[in-house]
Design a protein around this nucleic acid. Structure first.
Lengths: 239, 239
DNA sequence: CATGTTTTTTGACTCACATCAAACTCAATT
DNA sequence: AATTGAGTTTGATGTGAGTCAAAAAACATG
């Protein structure tokens, strides 16, 4: 695969993750506000479906606690992971262009979500600035794809994809006020691979290589980023 | 790369070219109708730009004679071909989501186009059935990406991509009432490769292999499909 | 705690496509 | 007809990631 140029990530519109991939996130205060407004809350055990392909699009969900993955199942049974959503983020926007969920979402750990019915979104968005900011996109049914696609169609190599993936997670945790250098990985290597268009072994090898270089410290279900700058550099090496 | 399953093309929503890739095309009568309506016509020499990245979106263009390629230029100078448009087809729809062209279009041969100003599209579409059919998509600014993306993000292997590419061209010529088995290739191997996410050598090799098998006859700038069924089969072999 | 099951890691191997380089074609120009 | 140069074909070689398999680690369960 291409060795390609040394363009900086920030200069490359086709693979600028920072701008393109951050999902709709709510602050702690906003999550609490939803509580006060008595929005319906529901619990899901690990493995439970939040919604399935073909379900009518009636609501989006604010994740209170836990994490989910979204995926589509191909006709032949293969799974394609399309994204990960964690506490403080909104999930369920994949249906906006069709009125139907084209994929399904399932809990990666025991989770609690807050349902935001479609017909109440306008009112809610007046109260929740983060929601407001994205409301017009939701209503105009603009297609919001997360960076999975961007990475796939881009020319990134396996380690670059994995580095980009970790950095995105890091940024998302930072946005929630959590540690950007030490966090859970509630999804399996298989899930990560599917999301990035790689095999699980390749993901594992990338982790191992990064660890050998002192960039990260991996444990099975969590990770610590030891050198954010180097991880960044890993992406910029090609683009 | 993946050996993958033996699902049939027609059963595989992620790579069903037939439905997804045919661009907006006008019949001969419709092109003539545009003439009668005195729509502005302009000539472009090979290599001329029809529009450039960043240009304001004021019009779409019906290609009267000739052919164009659309592309985006990356910051580092690399070119990424995003599509090919030929006589009888509409070009310039890439800007609909932003009001600005995100890429540029340039003539692959000496060409004549008919300008259809955005503000006259509604009126025009009442007269031109083909345009009518796509008008709501244009106005609703629905993102219309052609099959380049589909192919790239799919799991097709090099020869499958090239076969799919030729078949699409074939269908498009057929749609214009031209021979679906014998037609010009006004773009270079380089262009085809960029479009399909392959290197020019790989495209050339695919052509040579198909020729050896008696599926096609290649000349430098044109091609004859000798066995359409076999070419189809080449795609279905994986998906 | 012992046992079985799933997930992860690691290694050896394969293969499709990229890369590099040289030869060839064909059109345009002198 | 000879020259040039871009575009194309072909061959030799390299390499990144997939495949297969087995060991190791993590997790679950009686």
């Amino acid at each position: 695969m291409p060795p390609s140029s040394s363009a900086r990530l920030s200069n490359c519109s086709t693979c600028n993750l920072a701008e393109l991939c951050l999902p709709v996130g709510l602050t702690d205060e906003e999550m609490q506000r939803l509580d006060e407004l008595n929005m319906q809350k529901r619990s899901y055990a690990r493995g439970d479906y939040l919604y399935r392909g073909g379900d009518k699009f009636r609501a989006v969900f604010a994740i209170n606690r836990g994490a989910f993955k979204t995926r589509v199942l191909h006709e032949d049974g293969r799974e394609q992971v399309t994204g990960f959503q964690m506490a403080g983020e909104i999930i369920g926007l994949d249906a906006i262009s069709t009125d139907m969920h084209d994929g399904e979402a399932l809990a990666l750990e025991d989770s609690v979500v807050c349902e935001l019915p479609f017909h109440r979104l306008e009112a809610l968005s007046r109260d929740i600035p983060s929601l407001q900011r994205h409301f017009h996109r939701i209503m105009s049914r603009e297609i919001v794809r997360d960076q999975g696609i961007m990475l796939l169609l881009g020319s990134m190599r396996s380690e670059e994809r994995v580095a980009a993936f970790l950095l995105t997670l890091s940024q998302r945790y930072a946005a929630r006020g959590l540690s950007p250098t030490q966090f859970q990985l509630s999804m399996s290597r298989q899930d990560i691979g599917s999301y990035l268009g790689l095999k699980l072994e390749t993901v594992s090898r990338a982790f191992s290589n990064f660890q050998e270089k002192g960039i990260i410290a991996v444990r099975t279900r969590s990770i610590e980023i030891l050198d954010l700058a180097l991880l960044q550099a890993g992406i910029n090496s090609s683009c």
